[in-house]
Design a protein around this nucleic acid. Structure first.
Lengths: 197, 197
DNA sequence: TAAAAGTCTTAAACTAGTTCATTTTTTTTC
DNA sequence: GAAAAAAAATGAACTAGTTTAAGACTTTTA
């Protein structure tokens, strides 16, 4: 079968964990919603109840909360082939605490809550897919949160640079500071220092 | 049916997400291994390849890594009705980076890797159970890591006290410092300060 | 039950990271 | 392509948390 780029991307993503028949692929694709977000536009704002889980097929988005002091804390940058959204709001139907903003013109595929539930019913293999997806995310969160605490900001920066070379030159230094957990001023100092070497 | 305490505890834990028939309960219990650990003994040491995922039926354990500087970083305290272990090592069969040490005489039920795989085959409902368990853990990790960064050590202490009142008086101040991510000395100052109010 | 080992407290000197204010550089927009 | 807006750099004064060291209190073990 011939699929369009975005569909090939998401099917390959799923094929990491489960094999689907042609019929199942078709069925699955029929449950997806195509979404476009212009640069600087919001995919989600704190207070919204999230309608979708998103898979990014093009572009770059930042996922963040606003702390009590008003400072943004960025929890992830998401580019092509990443899943994003707010699982808590999606699951509980409570309003989200997150903002998701496109930092480039972006295209996504969304799975609505109704279709998510339907999916497990129609193609039970997806229980396995999500079990494994969540398992993996959990592992990387655990690693990140353990790691994060014991490293200095400079070490966290160097690590980020190594780990996400594709991401680092698509985001601002200010947003990177929001991710690393420091002020933009200190981020600037660190970068100057590290690059001087 | 009449089950022993530890079995009732784990069955109730599972019943949060899926319903099992009597036959399935029996089958499931037959896949578990009973484990006892004395206070100060290790359930797991960095370098080991983890053989089990654990459910605690009695006692208290601390899960931690040793940072490059030699300082322990505690990632969780686990008491009765908690699941613990190292998912990464369990899944990948790579050596773990974790230490798990009993801080009280403890009793656990273990699911071996072979039985974990068997479980999905014999009782496919367990895909759902683990999907939901991981989903939940993910949510609390995300919350914790977002939250953690934006709060001061004092705020993190107050929060821990509110959230885990059962745990706080079963652990030492030093271990609590290792969890909050500060030195024992500074932990002491904070506690003195907060309790003076 | 005494001694050893570990935990907690206090305090002074220190450091990683913040805050605020100003200037320069880059990006956006009309 | 000029003006406006946003991002980045730099520096000085400040603060949360660390380090080191020493004494008091508790728990463990022989």
């Amino acid at each position: 079968m011939n699929y369009k780029n975005s569909h090939t991307l998401i099917l390959n993503n799923i094929a990491r964990f489960i094999d689907l028949t042609e019929l199942e692929k078709k069925k699955y694709l029929s449950l997806l919603t195509e979404i476009k977000v212009k640069k600087k536009a919001f995919l989600m704002k704190a207070g919204d109840v999230t309608k979708y889980e998103y898979f990014i097929t093009k572009g770059c988005l930042k996922v963040y909360t606003i702390g009590e002091d008003g400072a943004p804390h960025i929890s992830m940058f998401a580019i092509e082939d990443y899943w994003t959204g707010d699982m808590v709001s999606f699951m509980t139907k409570e309003p989200t605490h997150y903002f998701i903003k496109a930092t480039e013109d972006s295209e996504l595929l969304g799975v609505s809550r109704a279709n998510y539930d339907l999916l497990f019913h129609e193609i039970p293999k997806f229980e396995r897919f999500y079990r494994m997806l969540y398992q993996r995310s959990l592992v990387s969160y655990i690693k990140r949160s353990n790691h994060g605490l014991s490293l200095t900001a400079e070490e966290r920066y160097i690590e980020f640079k190594m780990k996400y070379p594709k991401v680092i030159n698509r985001i601002t230094q200010k947003d990177l500071a929001g991710y690393i957990g420091i002020t933009p001023e200190f981020m600037s100092k660190i970068i100057t220092k590290v690059n001087r070497r």
